[in-house]
């Protein structure tokens, strides 16, 4: 909200109930799918400086512009392996039954070695056998369709191929998905470990600066230069932490997240203490001021109430502590 005010929006009000409060009070909720029509009224206002760039919204649903064939294939792709397998078996068995029924109804469409296939239960199995041979596109040719059964055989062969193809591609992509997920997880874990290490380094560096100043009597300028470089690292890490909370590509483990939040809290606390020790006369470098403002803005976003996911209460507590420190950071 303050962020919007900072961007120059003057007429902003905060609805304190939030999404949950709205629902509790019986308000209706809209789900995805209608965003495109909703942007229209906003753009009617006169643009002040920047030109309006159309935002491309990706929707999970296929729109009317997608070719029907792709949509049909997508419909298969969305099914699970089990569903596809049952669908394929269903198609094959049903077709087998239909061939047999065609025989029973005296059409005598299926022929084996020139002679019509009969009406008995063995002949039902023959019909099912023909159905499997057709659907797998093997086509031995020992049983052949004639008449109307030919139409059914063509349709069955096509449907069988498409469904079976989807099934195979499903198997292949499952393997790929698993490998990609594994690579992704390793990257995320390494990233998290790096954030924790960096936060710890910032914290120890700030502590070192403090002891150096107390014991060796460093001048304030020298101290501020080192604080500046530590602040630069801290800003980068805060940016990553905020990304973790608002755009999680993968949920961080609560213990990992807690370690990071503790690291942020300690580093911020130490920084505030250190800045409090700077003699009033010492001029802060301008870049440090900029970094402190950015840091405060980033830390303010890490508030338990605005983070979309529900965390354990003690996590929210850490986030709120960080937010509180952000307030003191700009005051310091």
């Amino acid at each position: 909200m303050r962020l919007l005010n900072g961007l120059g929006y003057a007429n902003v009000r905060h609805y304190r109930g939030g999404l949950a409060g709205w629902q509790e009070a019986g308000g209706a909720i809209e789900a995805e799918g209608v965003e495109e029509t909703e942007i229209v009224p906003l753009l009617s206002g006169p643009p002040e400086s920047e030109p309006v760039v159309p935002v491309v919204r990706t929707s999970h649903r296929a729109t009317a512009r997608t070719p029907w064939a792709v949509r049909a294939l997508d419909a298969f792709g969305d099914r699970s392996v089990g569903q596809l397998l049952s669908l394929w078996l269903g198609v094959v068995l049903t077709c087998g039954l239909l061939y047999w029924l065609a025989d029973v109804s005296l059409l005598n469409d299926l022929r084996q070695g020139g002679a019509p296939v009969g009406h008995g239960w063995r002949d039902f199995l023959t019909a099912e056998y023909f159905s499997f041979v057709t659907a797998t596109s093997v086509g031995f040719g020992d049983v052949v369709p004639t008449g109307l059964s030919r139409v059914l055989a063509v349709v069955e062969a096509m449907a069988g191929l498409v469904i079976f193809g989807s099934l195979i591609s499903k198997f292949v992509s499952r393997r790929q998905d698993r490998i990609i997920a594994e690579i992704h997880q390793t990257t995320v874990e390494e990233g998290l470990a790096r954030v924790r290490t960096n936060l710890h380094l910032v914290f120890t560096e700030l502590q070192n600066i403090e002891t150096s100043c107390e014991q060796r009597g460093w001048p304030a300028e020298r101290m501020l230069i080192r604080v500046e470089s530590a602040a630069l690292v801290l800003v980068g890490e805060l940016r990553i932490v905020r990304g973790l909370l608002y755009r999680p590509r993968q949920l961080p483990q609560e213990t990992d997240l807690e370690g990071i939040l503790v690291g942020v809290t300690l580093a911020l606390q130490q920084l505030i203490d250190l800045l409090g020790n700077v003699p009033a006369g010492a001029a802060r470098p301008q870049r440090l001021e900029v970094n402190l403002t950015t840091m405060a803005a980033l830390a303010r976003d890490i508030c338990g109430e605005c983070v979309p996911r529900a965390y354990e209460p003690h996590m929210v507590e850490w986030m709120d502590r960080i937010q509180g420190l952000a307030g003191r950071l700009t005051a310091a």
Binding site: V12, Y15, G17, G18, A20, G21, E305
Partner: peptide, 10 residues
């Protein structure tokens, strides 16, 4: 004129 909201009641 804008009304802003986040997740839970604040």
């Amino acid at each position: 004129e804008i009304a802003v909201y986040c997740g839970s009641p604040t």
